[in-house]
Amino acid sequence: MGSRVDEEYDYLFKIVLIGDSGVGKSNLLSRFTRNEFNLESKSTIGVEFATKSIQAEGKTIKAQIWDTAGQERYRAITSAYYRGAVGALLVYDISKHPTFENVERWLKELRDHAEANIVVMLVGNKSDLRHLRAVETDEAMAFSEQHNLAFIETSALDASGVDTAFQRILTEIYRLMSRRNMQAEEAAAGSSLSAGQTISLSDGGKKKKGCCA
């Protein structure tokens, strides 16, 4: 909106939120970007979008987050949005075991449609529903280690873990990228990515540093 002036940022990372319907993806997004939670949030039809900037290792990183519909058949529409994403939050609901069982299928979906080196974080949401817990933390932890995923539990309702989840995945992407850049720089003797360069490759990622509304 006209009034909201975009801040400067050093990097722009595109992140996708995926996982079964009803696990709380849209609420994780609204909690992180607007600090809002909504018990009556509509199921996402297609995709939704929001951004937020954070600080990591002295850099301003802007996350461009795509929230997708969870129902399986919507993948026909949403998988196009995986392109160019450097990170994915794969969300399940700790109170519904089937949503955890489906994580494998979501991983396959990423393998089929996303970049090969996408950073994936497994997110067990609704940690506030303690007495309804159906997925033990240990079980999810073991799974994530086995599949080389980062892991965290969150509650969009009471906000615990939400900022940390985004902060961690963005920081990790940043580190990986600077390591890759360094290697690239060594290889190409300095003719490589630098701060201010847009990392997200596709949709609308053309915005340059310091550009405002």
Binding site: M1, G2, R4, D6, F49, A50, D203, G204, K207, C211
Partner: peptide, 13 residues
């Protein structure tokens, strides 16, 4: 017509 990528999507919401 006056808005950029992100602003357009926020506006649409």
């Amino acid at each position: 017509l006056q808005l950029s990528f992100e602003e357009i999507l926020a506006f649409m919401r």
